[in-house]
C-alpha cells in the first residue's frame, strides 16, 4: 500500500465511514424494511413464479440459482448508487467534502471511507437477502456464511467505479449513461438469471472481463453448497477493479476539488 503510486489513506477514512454510518442509523427502520422487503418480493415472485416453469438450472433449484445471482447484482446496485448519487450529493451540492477538507482529512481518506461505507452497506443489505433466501429454503449449505465477506469485496469493486463517475459528473443526469450503458447490460449478461455458458462464445469472453460475473461465480457455489473454482482469479478481478477504481477516483477527485 505504501508504494509511490498508490495513495496512502489514514485512520481518518474511518471518521468518514462513521459519518455515513450515523446518517444511515437515522433512517434505520425504512432502510431495513427495504432491505428485507425487496428481495422477498423478487425471490418470491421471480424465484417461485418463474422457478415453477424452469425447475432446475445448473443442478440447483431455480430459486437458489436466482437468489445467488440477486445477492451479487443487488450489491452491485447498492454500491454503485451510493458511490454515485450519495457521494455526488456530498461532494457538490451539499459541500460536505469542502468542510471535511479543512480538517486533517484528505481526499484519499474521504474516498477510502466512502468505499468502506459502500462495502458495509452491501454486507448489510446482502445479509438481509441471504436471510430471506434461507427462510425460503434457497440456501443449501453453511458455506453461505462466507457470502457477506465476498459482498464486502463486491462493494469495494463497484463503489470504486461509481466514485470515478461521481468525480466526472457535471450533474445527476450523467449517471444515467453509466447505469444504462454499463450496469444494466452487466446485470442482464453476467449470469444472474441464466448461466453465462448459454451466451454466444464471443459474448462469454466479454462477460468474463466484467466484474459482476466473477462475483456471481464466487457467491453461487457458496449458497448452493457446491465446490468453488478459480477462486484466486475471481478475487483478483474484483480486487483489481476496486484498486484501480480507487486510484483513478482519487486522482480525478483531487483535480476537481483541489483547484
Amino acid at each position: 500500500m505504501a508504494n509511490l503510486f498508490f495513495p496512502r489513506f489514514s485512520n481518518a477514512a474511518f471518521a468518514v465511514w462513521r459519518r455515513n454510518a450515523l446518517v444511515w442509523r437515522k433512517l434505520l427502520l425504512p432502510s431495513i424494511l427495504i432491505n428485507f422487503g425487496e428481495p422477498f418480493l423478487y425471490l418470491l415472485g421471480l424465484g417461485y413464479g418463474l422457478g415453477l416453469f424452469i425447475g432446475e438450472m445448473m443442478h440447483m433449484p431455480y430459486l437458489t440459482f436466482l437468489a445467488s445471482g440477486i445477492l451479487a447484482s443487488s450489491s452491485m446496485n447498492t454500491a454503485s448508487f451510493e458511490a454515485m448519487f450519495s457521494v455526488y450529493t456530498r461532494m457538490i451540492p451539499q459541500r460536505t467534502y469542502d468542510a471535511i477538507l479543512t480538517t486533517p482529512v484528505e481526499v484519499q481518506d474521504i474516498l477510502a471511507g466512502e468505499m468502506l461505507w459502500c462495502a458495509t452497506k452491501c454486507v448489510i443489505s446482502g445479509s438481509a437477502i441471504l436471510i430471506v433466501a434461507a427462510f425460503l429454503g434457497a440456501v443449501h449449505d453453511w458455506s453461505a456464511l462466507g457470502v457477506p465477506a465476498i459482498l464486502f469485496l463486491v462493494g469495494l469493486c463497484f463503489s470504486g467505479m461509481g466514485l470515478i463517475m461521481s468525480s466526472l459528473a457535471p450533474g445527476y443526469d450523467f449517471f444515467n449513461y453509466y447505469v444504462t450503458l454499463v450496469l444494466t447490460p452487466m446485470f442482464i449478461l453476467s449470469g444472474v438469471f441464466y448461466p453465462v455458458s448459454s451466451l454466444p462464445v464471443a459474448l462469454q469472453s466479454l462477460v468474463q472481463l466484467l466484474p459482476l460475473s466473477h462475483a456471481v461465480d464466487l457467491i453461487r457455489p457458496l449458497v448452493a453448497g457446491l465446490p468453488l473454482t478459480n477462486v484466486a482469479l475471481h478475487l483478483a478481478v474484483l480486487a483489481g477493479y476496486a484498486m484501480l477504481g480507487y486510484l483513478i477516483a482519487v486522482r480525478l477527485t483531487r483535480k476537481r476539488l483541489l483547484v
Partner: peptide, 24 residues
Amino acid sequence: PQADNLDPDFTVVENLRIYGGYFG
C-alpha cells in the same frame, strides 16, 4: 469558510461531534 457547508444530515451538536471526529 465563506459559504455555509454545515452537514444538513445532522443536528447542531452532531455536526460538531462528527467534525471533531475528523481531528481524531
